[in-house]
Amino acid sequence: MSDLAAYESAYITHEDVIGDVAGYRRPYYKTQPEYLYPPYRSTIKRAPTRSLVWLPHTLSEITGPVFGYDDVKPDDADLTRQHSGEPLGERIIVSGRLLDENSKPVVKALIELWQANAAGRYRHDVDDHDAPLDPNFTGGGRVLTDAHGNYRFITIKPGAYPWRNHYNAWRPAHLHFSVFGIGLAQRLVTQMHFPGDPLISYDPMFNSVPDDNARQRLISQFDWEGTIPDFAIAFRFDIVLRGREQTFTQSTRS
C-alpha cells in the first residue's frame, strides 16, 4: 500500500476526522438569484430579513436521498401517454445531460418535471386562468438519469399564461424542473425556457438572476439532431449542479 493510500484509508476510518468532508463549491458571484427581488412581488413577504447563518457542509449536506426504479417508471417520462387520448399541442422531446461543475455526469439522479398545458393552463385548483383544461394532459413527469447523466422527456410545448405580478404580466412558456443530485447541497429547482420567446426578457423571475450568462443557461436550445421526422421537434437543456471542492479525499469514493 502506498503512503498516500494508507493515509487515505486512515483518513476515512478515523472517527475524529470522518466528519471533515470536502464541501460543495459555493455559488459563483451573481449567478444565482437573491431571495429578495422586489420586481417579483411575492419575494417581499417571503425572503428572509435576518442574516443567513453560514453553514459548513457536513455529512448532512454532502449526502442526499437515493432514488430508484421503484420511484420512477419508464412511462413517467412521457407526459403524452398518461391518459386514454393524446394531449393537444405541439409534441416535443426535451433531453439533456445532468452534470456537476466538475463536468462529471450525475447518474441515476431523479429529475421531476411539471408544466402547463398547450393553452397555458395548469391542472391545479389554484389556476383560474380562463383557458381550457385538456382531459388528456396532467403535466407531471419524472425520470432517472442514465449512466452518462442523460435524461429525456416527451411532452407537449406549454403555452404562455398571464399572472398578476404587474400590469400585463405574462410568463414565458416554461417547464419546471426539480433535480436531486448526490448531496443535499446540490438540490436544484429551476425552469427551462424556449429559445426565441419574446416574453423571456420581460419576465421578473428570469431577470432575478443578475448575471446575463447565467440567465442564458435557463434557455434550452433547439435540437435538430434530436428531432424525430414525422413525430416531434426536440430541445436540449443541460443542467449543471454544484461540484465538490477538489480534495484528495474525494478519490476514496465516487
Partner: peptide, 11 residues
C-alpha cells in the same frame, strides 16, 4: 471548475 451551475428558479 469547468462549468457553472444552472440558476435556481421558483417552484
Amino acid at each position: 471548475m469547468s462549468l457553472l451551475s444552472t440558476p435556481s428558479q421558483t417552484v
